[in-house]
Amino acid sequence: MNDFIHERFQHSTGGAARRRKLVALSLQPSKWTSSTEIRHLTPEIAKAYAGLTAKTVSRDLNALENLGLITRTRTGVAPAIELLRSFIPLRASRTEQRAAR
């Protein structure tokens, strides 16, 4: 899942891309995070948003939503798990694993 996020930002440079990547990597699966909590997810994110306004957070969340990396509601944001799951390799069933031996 992290590889997919890293790929999305592979050719992006600058402070905004760095902040957005940090946020996308720091959101907890199946947990909604309020927009006001975003800037305090990790010390690194807090440092990246230091001196910036709530509008910057909002723009970053809009960009992540447009990339399909997060889902937003009025109450908060969460990773777009359905998209990210499609990039996780499928595991072989136990029967298939035994047959391969």
Rank of each mutant, 00 (worst) to 15 (best):
A63S: 13
E65M: 12
P79C: 04
T71H: 05
I70Y: 05
N66I: 04
A48P: 09
I45T: 14
K47L: 04
L41V: 10
E65S: 13
R72F: 03
A48H: 03
K47G: 00
A50W: 01
E44Y: 08
L69M: 05
T36I: 11
A50Y: 05
K31V: 09
V57Q: 11
Y49R: 02
R39L: 06
W32E: 04
K31W: 11
T33L: 10
L41P: 06
V77L: 02
T36H: 10
W32T: 04
R74C: 02
L67Q: 13
N62P: 05
A54P: 09
T42H: 07
L69G: 00
H40Y: 12
S34V: 04
P79V: 02
R59H: 09
L64N: 03
S34F: 05
A78Y: 01
L61H: 11
K55Y: 11
A78K: 07
T75M: 06
A63H: 13
E44V: 11
G68F: 07
T75Y: 04
G68V: 10
L41H: 07
K47N: 06
Y49I: 00
L27H: 01
S30D: 15
Q28M: 04
A50P: 03
S58H: 15
A54V: 10
V77I: 12
K31Q: 13
R59P: 04
G68K: 12
L27C: 03
P79I: 01
T53F: 10
P29T: 08
T33F: 09
S34L: 06
T36C: 09
R59Y: 10
L64Q: 00
G51L: 00
L67R: 13
T42D: 06
E65H: 15
Y49D: 01
Q28E: 08
T33R: 11
L61G: 08
W32Y: 03
I70T: 05
A48I: 09
I38Q: 01
P43H: 08
E37F: 06
T33D: 12
K31F: 07
W32F: 09
A50D: 06
K47H: 04
E44R: 13
P43C: 12
T42S: 12
S35K: 12
L52P: 00
W32H: 02
E37S: 15
E37K: 15
A54G: 12
A63R: 06
T73A: 01
E37T: 05
Q28P: 04
N62M: 15
T73W: 00
T53S: 15
L52D: 04
L41A: 07
A48D: 02
L67I: 11
R59K: 13
I38S: 00
A80Q: 02
T73D: 02
A80P: 01
T71F: 06
L27Y: 01
N62F: 12
T73C: 01
L52R: 10
T75G: 08
S35R: 15
S58W: 14
L69C: 06
G51T: 00
I45R: 07
W32P: 02
A46R: 05
I45N: 15
P79F: 01
L64W: 01
G76W: 02
S30F: 12
P29A: 10
G51R: 00
L61E: 11
T36G: 08
L67N: 08
T73S: 05
Q28N: 06
L69V: 05
A50E: 08
P43Q: 04
H40S: 09
K31A: 10
N66C: 11
A78C: 06
N66G: 15
S34C: 09
R39M: 13
L64H: 01
S30N: 14
R39Q: 10
A78I: 04
S35Q: 14
T53K: 12
